[in-house]
Amino acid sequence: MGLEIYNSTVQAAVNWARKFSLFQYPFVTACCGMEFMSSAAPKYDLARFGAEFPRFSPRQADLLIIVGTITERQGPALRRIYDQMCEPKWVVAFGVCASTGGFYQNYSTMPGADQVVPVDVYIPGCPPRPEQVLDALILLQERIQRGEGHSQIVLKAEAGHDVPIAAIRPRDKGPHAVAGKTEGAK
């Protein structure tokens, strides 16, 4: 009984630290990028939530924000970037194009980024207001605190218990890596 309480307190503390120090990787494609810039700008400051500066390398980031429409051509690149991130990692689908494809139902648009990566929080809106973005960030933080992000659940399932410390283990090579051809140099 005492050991479990000790464990859960550590887990809570670790999750608390994780949620307030998110290193974001903004995968910006389209119009939502403008609202992402606005939410990082002085008026709707993202920095006060701890998600201060974007880390422009997936190896250093733990929050993948998919901003804007994902096309079929972009799919392998997105998948690759997701695989290159270390765990635990979270994904936010910013905008309705990244959530479900938006009003683009055609031969080139992927109907939502969750076709290729598991998404934790969806932000609808075309583009979403910065207040929605902040609300989504708070929702994500609550999920992280409870340990319910997709990647946290997978880690716990694999380890058999709560994993207090980050498992620095990208999945470039492994059971979830992309099989077959990605965009080769042409």
Partner: peptide, 19 residues
């Protein structure tokens, strides 16, 4: 004569956590 919604996916759609 090319249908608007005929997709040709470049990447398979399954095999990751959640799917």
């Amino acid at each position: 004569d090319y249908p608007k919604e005929k997709r040709q996916p470049l990447i398979r759609r399954s095999g990751f956590p959640g799917k």
